[in-house]
Simulated assay, not measured.
Amino acid sequence: MPDAATLIELDERIAILRSNLSELTEQATAYSGAADEDRAAERIAQQQQLLDTLLKQREEMAR
């Protein structure tokens, strides 16, 4: 059984990443230049990849 503190910490990190993704998406809609859009898309992709990794860890720990 996973440690409850570890699960709580993981859940907190997941919540932060979801919030970051939401903010980045909102910011990306305000960008007008191609370079800015590329940077925003790259940052969103990085955050999504990290979120996916954490969600996978969380799922494995819950088993």
Rank of each mutant, 00 (worst) to 15 (best):
M1F: 06
P2L: 03
P2D: 09
A5M: 11
A5H: 05
A5D: 15
T6W: 07
T6E: 15
T6R: 15
L7Q: 12
L7S: 08
I8D: 15
I8W: 13
E9I: 03
L10R: 10
L10P: 08
E12N: 13
I16Y: 08
R18S: 12
S19N: 14
N20E: 09
L21P: 03
L24V: 09
T25P: 01
T25R: 12
T25L: 03
E26A: 12
Q27C: 04
A28E: 05
T29K: 11
A30Q: 09
A30W: 06
Y31W: 08
Y31V: 13
S32G: 01
S32L: 06
G33K: 07
G33W: 02
A34D: 12
A34H: 05
A34S: 10
A35P: 00
A35V: 08
A35T: 09
A35S: 10
A35Q: 14
D36I: 00
E37W: 02
D38A: 15
R39V: 06
R39L: 12
R39G: 03
R39I: 10
R39K: 11
A40Q: 02
A41Y: 01
E42S: 08
E42R: 09
R43N: 02
R43E: 13
A45C: 00
A45D: 06
Q46K: 14
Q47R: 05
Q47V: 06
Q49D: 15
Q49M: 09
L50W: 01
L51C: 03
L51W: 02
D52Q: 05
D52P: 04
T53E: 15
L54D: 10
L54W: 01
L55M: 12
L55V: 07
Q57E: 14
Q57K: 11
Q57L: 10
R58T: 01
E59C: 02
E60R: 10
E60P: 00
A62K: 04
R63P: 00
